[in-house]
């Protein structure tokens, strides 16, 4: 019934997609958490369902365009006006497909919502235009702003080629450090306007809203640097408040925490705070000190 040549041509065209679809400059990253992998597979499942429907629907359209053209002598069948059976069929099939998609999506949603049994809590506050990270109960608090090199290069008419800057716009002065294989709970809020904290490799995107706290969590299974950006328009420098999460081994994390606490103690004891050390005074005081 369907024109085989058209179908196979279409197949080749669409078949070309997966070859590139897994390249990270074309597609969603698989990510480094269980949730991110689930989200990625949901994305791919829905994508392929769409491709399958597209093959059928576009196939029928293309076939009609080729086969039923007046120039080829096609005569219109003007008696074909409606068909209840057909309408019922093409309403029911999509319903079934949608149910099939909704079930796994709902399951993942439930898992994403479960913030219990977190081993580490980090409070994240969005500012115009930087992030503040406070490790709850650990006395560690610091701001994270766009790295200096990117910041020079991104100025209007800076004359610096962004291609010469490593990780242009995705580098910060203070990275968030978290241990691997640890459930990290994020408490998000904002100081001024709404921001949104997004790290694609964790499949975490949550708004930071002034006056309110939102929860999110991730458990990275792989050591490494993961980057993200603010994703809610928050004013002039919205494009320039990146996120860098450095996932380290549990031992390295313990060492990092000890270093930070020691540095904080030194700073609190009246030593001139060094620019490179994150300050770890009481959260509110540090918020004030930064102004």
């Amino acid at each position: 019934m369907l024109n085989r040549k058209v179908l196979s041509a279409l197949g080749v065209l669409l078949g070309a997609a997966p070859a590139v679809a897994y390249d990270s400059s074309y597609n969603m990253p698989v990510g480094v958490t269980q949730i991110a992998r689930e989200v990625h597979s949901l994305h791919m499942i829905v994508f392929w369902i769409c491709v399958a429907i597209a093959v059928a629907v576009f196939g029928a359209m293309i076939y009609s365009i080729i086969a039923f053209r007046k120039s080829k002598g096609a005569v219109a069948d003007t008696t074909m006006l409606h068909s209840t059976i057909v309408e019922v069929i093409w309403t029911t099939i999509p319903v079934l497909i949608l149910v099939g998609m909704a079930v796994p999506a709902a399951k993942t949603l439930v898992r994403m919502d479960d913030t219990r049994n977190a081993e580490l809590s980090i409070k994240i506050t969005g500012y115009q235009w930087k992030w503040q990270y406070e490790y709850l109960g650990k006395g560690i608090s610091f701001y994270s702003t766009l790295g200096a090199e990117s910041n020079y290069a991104r100025q209007l008419h800076s004359g610096i080629d962004p291609n010469t800057v490593k990780d242009y716009l995705l580098e910060v002065d203070h990275e968030v450090v978290v241990p691997v294989d640890t459930k990290v709970r994020l408490l998000l809020t904002a100081n001024d306007v709404i921001h949104s904290w997004w790290v694609p490799d964790f499949a975490v995107k949550k708004d930071a809203i002034p006056g309110f706290i939102n929860e999110a969590w991730f458990k990275s299974e792989k050591i490494g640097h993961y980057t993200g950006q603010c994703t809610e328009l928050c004013g002039r420098d919205h494009g320039f408040m990146p996120i860098v999460v450095n996932v380290v081994s549990k031992e390295d994390f313990a060492r990092w925490v000890a270093d930070q606490q020691a540095a904080a103690k030194a700073a609190a004891e009246g030593a001139a705070p060094t620019a490179t050390t994150a300050t770890t005074i009481a959260p509110a005081a540090s918020a004030a000190a930064a102004r």
Partner: peptide
């Protein structure tokens, strides 16, 4: 119970829970 204090847009303040948990 975990307590959190945030100073939002209020200039120079100290504002924090006396006990964290």
């Amino acid at each position: 119970i975990e307590f959190i204090g945030t100073v939002a847009h209020a200039g120079e303040w100290e504002f924090a829970p006396t006990a964290n948990t």
